[in-house]
Amino acid sequence: MEKEKRIKHYSSKHKILLVGEGDFSFSLCLAKAFGSASNMVATSLDSKGTLGIYYSRALDNLLQLEDLGCTILHGVDAHAMSQHAFLKDKLFDQIVFNFPHAGFLFSELSSRGIELHRDLVRGFMRSSREMVSEDGEIHVTHKTTHPFSEWKMEEIAKEVGLFLVNEVPFYKWDYDGYCNKKGSGSKCNKTFNVGECSTFRFMKKKDPPITSQVNNERNEYF
């Protein structure tokens, strides 16, 4: 049996789905820590053809991931991934979305911009809830200062039947080689200061057992 290898919250024994990967540097960081990426599926919204245009290191990162056995999917919409032909019948121990962002159509300070970002996170969480294992976790890494705090991650999670397990401070230096990207238009390949941010770890709310519901109904008659 292979020895388990870990990096922060992630283990080589976990089945991990990474969403919105940009230049795939976070996926590659995990894969190198594990010595293999056979337990990982890494996805992006971009097509493979556009990645080389948008991100300077993406194609090299993809080649390394492929050599390490990673399954890579392009054109995956975070809102609809539970219906994706490859993903729809699979369950994951962890589903990860780092710094989700709906683009710069509106100012990040505006109410319309904030609601667009909230819609992105809501769709991701709703889709992820169908794909995470019973005791698995959904991770969203996100800035915690204003205006990003106005996204209200825990509130969105409750809407879709998730609960916050904990909120862990995120430090970029914990993930050697990870380079966060803006991921929008001409700004795609630019990085940004993550500042104060956390990884929010969510799990599914469990429905009460059917037997308990039946017993409660019976007790009403006595």
Rank of each mutant, 00 (worst) to 15 (best):
P147H: 11
K190Y: 10
K190M: 11
F148E: 08
T191L: 01
P147L: 10
K152D: 15
Y171W: 02
K187M: 02
W173S: 15
M153K: 08
G195C: 02
S184C: 06
E130H: 13
E159K: 12
Y175G: 08
F192P: 06
G195S: 03
R129C: 10
E134T: 10
T145M: 05
H139D: 10
T199H: 01
V132E: 11
K143P: 08
A157M: 05
N180Q: 14
F170R: 11
I156Y: 05
N193T: 06
W173L: 08
E130S: 14
T191Q: 08
F170N: 07
E150M: 09
F192Q: 02
R129T: 13
K158W: 09
D135Y: 12
V168W: 00
E155R: 12
S198I: 00
S186V: 12
E137M: 12
S128M: 07
M131D: 11
W173K: 14
G161K: 03
A157W: 03
L164N: 12
H142S: 09
M153V: 09
S198K: 06
D174I: 00
K187Y: 04
G183V: 01
T199C: 07
I138R: 06
Y175F: 15
W173R: 13
V132H: 13
K187I: 01
S133G: 15
C197W: 01
G183Y: 00
V160D: 12
N193F: 03
C197P: 04
E155M: 11
V140W: 04
Y171C: 02
N189G: 13
E150L: 15
T141M: 04
F163R: 14
L162D: 09
G185S: 05
V168I: 14
E159C: 07
T144D: 15
H146A: 14
V165T: 01
C179S: 07
E154L: 00
S186I: 11
V168Q: 13
S127G: 04
F163Y: 14
K158C: 08
W151T: 04
R129M: 10
K143C: 09
M153H: 15
S127Q: 05
V132Y: 13
V168H: 06
F170P: 01
N180M: 03
E134N: 12
E130Q: 15
L162K: 04
V168Y: 02
K182A: 00
